[in-house]
Amino acid sequence: MSNLSREDVAHVAMLARIQLEDAELDRLAAQLDQIVDWVGQVGEVASADVPPMSHPMPLANVTRPDEVRDSLTVEQALANAPQAQDDRFAVPRILDEE
């Protein structure tokens, strides 16, 4: 049984903002289906009473004082920008939302 269809992969790739080409989609879908089947074995072992562990170290309350530190200069901030204009990052037109 297939866990992950080609359509699923296309949808997830869209969520992940990766514009896959058709051939890539075919190849990745097949591999991912196999991998998803394999990782699904995590469902076999842990029961409901096992708490999830999101972090290896049991730390809490790590904070910093509200004190200003040096920022980058605007030149440094923009140095790696693919495109900049008027000290801002220039990006292609944004769809839909304001």
Partner: peptide, 26 residues
């Protein structure tokens, strides 16, 4: 911007990276 992101990420990432990003997103 959305299309540029999609194309840049497709071109900029190799197969293994894409596999894992898609797996993790899923």
């Amino acid at each position: 911007a959305e299309q540029v992101m999609g194309a840049s990420r497709d071109a900029g990432f190799g197969d293994e990276v894409k596999r894992r990003i898609i797996l993790g997103t899923y």
